[in-house]
Design a protein around this nucleic acid. Structure first.
Lengths: 256, 256
DNA sequence: AGAAGGACCAGTGGTCCGTA
DNA sequence: AGAAGGACCAGTGGTCCGTA
């Protein structure tokens, strides 16, 4: 029947034309406080946009069967077209909502917090079942997020901007300043993203170069793997910062 | 040339007819203090048995190239026969050295300590290089151990007996008593191994059922993954120990 | 029969590159 | 051109089962 056909399609990751909700940052300051506007990026009919409101956060579903057929909603509309991509990010100031077909950086950081919430849910299910319990945002968590309807969350995107989120967590002042500067200069997201590395390496330098400890010491950041490139930058900088013969000296030691 | 041919063979994991060293527990008590006898299990000629003494612990080699050709020793002897297996374990009392073509349990536990030492070496290499640093005995560590000449270490074996080692770490008295009882009764290794689960579950029960925390709180045990079956047993016992309606109550709570 | 371990397999971390 | 993300890939955790 139809439900099964839809299931089959959604298991291929091709259809599932759900309306996606986002909450827009209402009033200034950090992410996570306000609400995002509902932004439809699915192929579904417009009239469905306000349905399935909080789908992304709750719903008690199992994490290991591909089917949610027979639900109370139909995925109607024209079949066969792929889900549209998320709007690209632009550099926004803290509290600024992106206009047009763009997403802002508060929204980006909000996605990291959503992932952490999904992780916490996966952890509590695992504990209930006596299964091994992930400490990081793993593939399993991304799968869970997708099943929870948060189809706008995906691994490549989240991994791509982890270090930007790290800066946001570790030095909100510096992060905010960087956003304002790059917005003012009209830089694109790629340039801003690149620029996030340098202040992080400086933070690492101050804290004995142990980027893993820095991540793990921060509760919201600890659930993310340290990005390879950030690790490499810290290592390279550490090596060249140290006196040539004291590369193997421990943390906190300065060359003199 | 010959060296290359040998390399090729050893990369298939088929030959490398090295003499293997083991250190025998000299004087009673726990493992790790004494020395094991040299036990040859390779196909190499007998006269080579005392060569390459400490091979398994040191040697500065890289962890990612398969070649150690051109070394100072030849692997001589008849080619083409597979490496012999390790002698099977028998249940021995603490301090007792297995006789005949058998290995004792002090030796088994010693292997766990060797693996931990290999892990520590892998970790220090990773830190020097600024690579991500394993916290557990991973495939990478088993590969490293093999390259270090400890060909008698392998993943299936180590995973098979982890919970036995856990009991040895967490309650040496109970572990020793179990060994003596099973030896006296003439039980085989499989029966002893099975019997190790029960006292571990009892320990978990006393400590809020969190077997992961119990492993992680012990420095020598923390480097080992909690075995699936032990985790399942703890969970099953926990569920049935709790009152039916309070399965989701936290640790340390008793049903009353 | 009891046991050691090569080798396989499903699902991982990581990210490239065809896509829009 | 800049960017989002499906999909691939090497190496993982886990352990079965052909072997001795």
């Amino acid at each position: 029947d139809t439900a099964n056909a839809l299931d089959a399609l959604s298991q291929e990751g091709l259809s599932e034309e759900r309306v996606q909700q986002k909450e827009a940052a209402g009033s200034g300051g950090g992410a996570g406080g306000g609400r995002w506007e509902v932004v439809a990026v699915g192929g579904g009919s417009k009239k469905q946009q306000r349905r399935k409101k909080v789908q992304a956060r709750m719903a008690s579903f199992d994490d290991d069967d591909g089917s949610d057929g027979g639900d109370d909603d139909d995925n109607g509309g024209g079949r066969g077209d792929h889900r549209q991509r998320e709007h690209p990010f632009i550099v926004t100031e803290p509290g600024e909502v992106a206009r047009g077909k763009k997403n802002g950086l508060d929204y980006l950081f909000h996605l990291y917090e959503q992932c952490r919430e999904f992780l916490i849910q996966v952890q509590s299910v695992a504990k209930e079942r006596g299964e091994k319990c992930p400490t990081k945002v793993t593939n399993q968590v991304f799968r869970y997020a997708k099943k929870a309807g948060a189809s706008y969350i995906n691994k490549p995107k989240m991994r791509h901007y982890v270090h930007c989120y790290a800066l946001h967590c570790l030095d909100q002042e510096a992060s905010n300043a960087l956003r304002r500067a790059f917005k003012e200069r009209g830089e694109n997201v790629g340039a801003w993203r690149q620029a996030c590395y340098k202040p992080l390496v400086a933070i690492a330098a101050r804290q004995g170069w142990d980027i893993d400890s820095i991540f793990n010491a921060h509760p919201r950041l600890a659930v993310w793997y340290v990005p390879t490139k950030l690790r490499q930058l810290c290592h390279a900088e550490h090596s060249s910062a140290a006196a040539p013969s004291s590369v193997s000296s421990g943390p906190e030691r300065l060359p003199f």
